[in-house]
Amino acid sequence: MTRKFDLPTLFVGAAAAFVLAFIYLPMVVVVVYSFNPDAVNVFPMRGFSLRWYRVLLEDEQLVSALRISLLIALGGTSIGLLLGVPGAIALARHEFPGKRILERIVLLPLTLPGIVTGVAMLSFFPLIGVPVSLLAVLIGHGTFLIAITLTQVYARLRRLDPSLEEASADLGAPPLTTFFRVILPNIKTAIIGSALLSFTLSLDEIPVTFFLIAGDNTLPIQIWAMMRRGISPEVNAISTLVFAGSIGLILLGTALGGRDKE
């Protein structure tokens, strides 16, 4: 079958290709130039080298920033799970006074600009004995990660037939048994997905972190600091690793989510 020469389709296709290139080309440039043997990023690149990855490994500040970021992400994700999952169950399955207000409050960290949340926390946390520190950063991350987990798990629960829980109780299972044997298996993938998402978002967070951090930088803040000092291809290398890491987490998340859909 021959297709007619189709001008509008061709035009839309070309526009689509341009936009896709616009989104990806800059990232490709960063990855390619992370193998740049020179200290300046110019075209054309002269050769291929792992030089900047070696520099990276010896950069103690960067390695420490990565370690701090991973710890904060781990802690923040745990807070998000421990408080977000019960909150999602309460909102999806129970009626209580103040429910509507809580629903709106939960969305605030997702809808309001991070900078406002950041300066609000910066002003308030010292008053309740939390000075500007990694602890403050952890609390800040935990707060918006509760929102992430809660909304994701809530959406799953809304699609889960509530009579499953009634059936479990009807068959003699007390509430905790129902939770572990009926609810949990059915929201498991949403929990894992939101944990991966939380982890990725925490690793990348800047606006809130920027205002709450004291001395020790997280990874994105450290990268920012390095950029301000001047462009070093070392940043290309760390950026490439960050890309690889976040894409890995995303693929893991969609793979788990996809398995759930079949």
Partner: peptide, 17 residues
Amino acid sequence: VPLWVSYIVRAYAWKII
């Protein structure tokens, strides 16, 4: 996918370009 890919790195990309 780019939704979740590091903000700072994407801003940086334009800086070197």
